[in-house]
């Protein structure tokens, strides 16, 4: 085989691998999107016919999850299922995820700065914080349920915010610590000599240098919280159900699992993380941030 043919074969092989990977990863997204627009008859194969694309495109699934009826008329569908509304669960999810992320960032970032710059907690503390993540959340969720009931945090938004912050706190500390480690200590010292307080030096000189890292951490933690199912399932009841818990419960007596409505809600739930990633994409590229400090 000539060198050119070899190289061409290599390229083809590589493209093939890329294509196969893309198919595997994008298939669920494709199925989710099409399912969201399929009427109930097309949710499952009928008479061996698989519906790769919806035959009769419909917004019925979206109407259904926001309190309307899937078929558009007010007739028979009421008998099939009681009306549901996903708006409150989505708002609950937003508040709990954003609140938990913000709380974890505030506490975690200050902890990370203390560890990185001042050696707070010695060698032990950072590992103790990491140990918090060495067991799966399900291992502690039942005791937490008792605790939350006792503290009257069960089925409340503050309860969710606190548990989300607590569970993601170790990630924030470890991620932010490595970003702070990269900032030369002279940055803080220069700000202090120039008249800043300790807090001022942190806010005006150090923090702006790690904003890329902060954005990355925020996105990561937000996605963790946003996609949580298990914790919300245990620690909430009807009142502050989050969107993922709500989604799992969309079903009706007549049809069982309502795949189309679930897909419609799933599609909506993808939007915030995607929007957030686009918004902070600029910061995800760390580029020259530290380039000018030492060469």
């Amino acid at each position: 085989m000539s060198a050119l043919a070899k190289r061409r074969a290599g390229v083809i092989l590589r493209l093939g691998a890329v294509a196969a990977t893309l198919v595997v990863f994008l298939f669920p997204v494709y199925w989710l999107v099409t399912m969201a627009f399929k009427p109930q008859q097309e949710w499952a194969p009928t008479e061996g016919q698989i519906f790769w694309l919806p035959h009769d495109w419909t917004f019925g699934n979206f109407r259904r999850i926001f309190g309307g009826s899937a078929t558009g008329d007010s007739g028979l569908s009421f008998l099939i299922s009681t009306p549901i509304d996903a708006l409150t669960p989505i708002l609950n999810s937003l508040v709990a995820s954003v609140g938990g992320t913000a709380l974890a960032l505030v506490i975690g970032t200050s902890t990370a700065y203390g560890i990185s710059r001042f050696g707070a907690g010695g060698k032990v503390l950072p590992f103790q914080i990491l140990q918090l993540r060495m067991f799966p959340p399900i291992a502690i969720i039942i005791p937490v349920l008792f605790l939350w009931t006792y503290l009257k945090l069960f089925d409340t938004l503050p309860g969710l915010v606190i548990i989300y912050a607590a569970i993601t706190f170790p990630f924030v500390v470890w991620l932010m610590r490595s970003f702070f480690d990269e900032v030369p200590r002279e940055i803080r010292e220069a700000a202090i000599v120039d008249g800043c307080s300790e807090l001022g030096a942190f806010r005006k000189a150090v923090l702006p240098l790690v904003r890329g890292g902060l954005a990355t951490t925020a996105l990561f933690v937000f996605i963790l919280n946003w996609s949580d199912f298990l914790i919300a399932l245990v620690l909430t009841s009807q009142r502050v159900h989050t969107a993922p818990v709500f989604l799992s419960q969309i079903q009706s007596a007549a049809t069982g699992q309502e795949y189309g409505s679930q897909a419609a809600l799933g599609l909506i739930l993808i939007i915030p993380p995607v929007l957030l990633s686009i918004l902070i994409q600029r910061h995800l590229v760390r580029g020259l941030t530290f380039g000018a400090v030492k060469r």
């Binding site: 030369p184 002279e186 940055i187 010292e189 220069a190 000599v193 702006p208 020259l288 530290f290 400090v293």
Partner: peptide, 11 residues
């Protein structure tokens, strides 16, 4: 104070 590493605020 002028530092060896300049300690310029790159932002």
């Amino acid at each position: 104070f002028v530092f060896q590493s300049y300690a310029i605020f790159t932002h």
